[in-house]
Amino acid sequence: MSAEERDKLIKQNPAYGEIVCRCEEISKGEILDALNSPIPVYALDAIKRRVRPGMGRCQGGFCSPLVMKILAEHKGVKVEEITKANQQSKVLLGDTKGAQER
């Protein structure tokens, strides 16, 4: 894609200009495309396989939290509901400040 084509795409949909994975230069728009596809996937590993965030130098160190937020927002759930792979692989436990329960 040329710079002109890319520019046009971003002006139609600014999410394509918001770079989430800076190791692989992947935009929020590309991640949302995977979530809006006929077979959406809501796990980090699945997004990684489809769209590549997390495959680069930092192995998801910087982008995982951002990708999880995008997934959670799209699905309408809290970020602690997002899994790495299957249902038993939740990444986060819940809010901080829950020391009493722990």
């Binding site: 998801g60 160190g61 910087f62 995982s64 939290p65 937020k69 970020v79 602690e80 899994t83 790495k84 792979a85 692989s89 939740k90 990444v91 986060l92 436990l93 819940g94 809010d95 901080t96 400040k97 829950g98 722990r102």
Partner: peptide, 24 residues
């Protein structure tokens, strides 16, 4: 390759920016 392996900086982001606990 289970969930629950974090680099310290990413864990720090979860705790201090998102306010979420990654571990017990």
């Amino acid at each position: 390759r289970p969930a629950g392996v974090f680099t310290a900086g990413t864990a720090q982001y979860y705790v201090n920016i998102l306010g979420k606990m990654p571990t017990k």
